[in-house]
Design a binder for these strands. Structure first.
Lengths: 229, 229
DNA sequence: TCTGGACGTTATGTATACATAAATTCCGAA
DNA sequence: TTCGGAATTTATGTATACATAACGTCCAGA
């Protein structure tokens, strides 16, 4: 993929060791995504600087960038906190991602190369095996690859970037959910149905099925949120 | 609108005078969007600091945030330049925005309140009058309001934010284009067709028409790009 | 004249210092 | 004891200073 990603606009990926501010940004992103830094947590600049063995300057830069991504809230002169999102907002995000995914599938159906189609089938097989082995982590990884392959197959680099970015932002808030055993199997089945529609070249059907697929995940998520808040 | 916008995550909009870094960010955003700062232009930190009567620190913060938004490219230790986008990328962006708009219209059709529907019709009338008066600037403003009203009418605050943000990013690159007289009239007609579908509650048709509407604008843009590059 | 490398210059990346607004604490009055 | 406000403290916002990598220049050699 020739297109430059959001992050590449800063990192370039070529110039050897990352800048301090970049390393801090990545670390904080990971920690927020993993839930190590829970929503509402205050982020003290000096404290973070000490932790990373840096001064406040690169820490500040990292925090400002995280704010643009929506991962933290900055209240001028009142500090930075990990963004606290309401369940309604999470559902809004989920619906948005679902619609974007549906959109990507539709475009991808009409534009993907045979190689990309093959890659999707391959990933689907891998996912099935991971599901049978009940290896949830492996499934998660393959699942992400499946979706990202779809994004790339739209042959719209910008859209793919947006989709990846959105998916990442959602991940940051959907903690350790969706580990129900039957959800995994159903997810596989739903992927299969989507692939079938793609194989027939029916982008509209594929799109509808993807929306339903994401919607099912959202319903599971809503149940989770109602239980654990 | 209760939802907090991307930028509000930083500005809050309540705490009186904006931070220096915010003012600089806004100013640079406007200048890039207006084309005063052309793609490829190198942005010297000290120079900008002098211009804004500030030190390098807030300038740097502003530049980092612009990089996350994709308005500038930062190459570590090699400086900041206004993002140079290829025509292909602009077309990718345009297609993405078109699909998002189509998506918004579909959701909005099924969810908008009578008040929102009335507001759309009102804006449509205003736009018609501006078009007849050939007041392009007024039309631009009303047009933006029309689209933003549609975003809000999805009743998905996150999606609305994304749509506004994407539209803004596209604006930043589509210079002083689309001033063909007939394009304006056709744009009005297309809006009318979209509204008609909305009135009938036919979200799918409204969505298709919006996609076509944006596609027409994209075609005009492509012609412009091919001519002026 | 052209190529290549060393040197000097410049701008970025980071650290530190200072100003100021917000939060906290403490004290006095009711 | 409780409430209100002033003083103190703390952390953010900004400025400045320093280290270093990238760039340009200049000169030597072919």
């Amino acid at each position: 993929m020739a297109g430059h990603t959001e992050s590449e606009a800063i990192e370039t990926g070529l110039d050897g060791p990352l800048l301090l501010s970049e390393r801090i940004r990545n670390a904080l992103t990971d920690e927020i995504a993993a839930g190590d830094l829970q929503p509402g947590t205050a982020l003290d600049e000096q404290q973070l600087a000490d932790r990373f063995g840096a001064s406040r300057t690169p820490v500040r830069e990292a925090l400002r960038q995280l704010a643009v991504s929506g991962l933290v809230d900055i209240r001028p002169r009142r500090g930075v906190v990990v963004a606290r999102v309401t369940p309604e907002r999470v559902m809004d995000m989920f619906e948005t991602v679902a619609e974007i995914e549906a959109l990507c599938v539709r475009l991808a159906t009409y534009r993907m190369t045979p190689a990309e189609r093959g890659r999707l089938l391959e990933l689907h097989d891998e996912a099935s095996r991971a599901a049978e082995a009940e290896d949830v982590d492996a499934y998660d990884g393959i699942n992400a690859a499946f979706h990202e392959t779809l994004y790339q197959a739209t042959h719209n680099a910008f859209l793919a970037e947006q989709a990846i970015s959105l998916r990442g932002r959602l991940n940051a808030f959907r903690r350790t959910q969706l580990r129900y055993k039957d959800r995994l199997a159903r997810s596989i089945a739903e992927h299969g149905a989507i692939l079938a529609a793609i194989a027939e070249g029916d982008g509209e059907t594929a799109s509808r099925r993807m929306r339903a697929h994401m919607s099912n995940a959202a319903i599971a998520l809503r149940r989770y949120l109602e239980l654990h808040t």
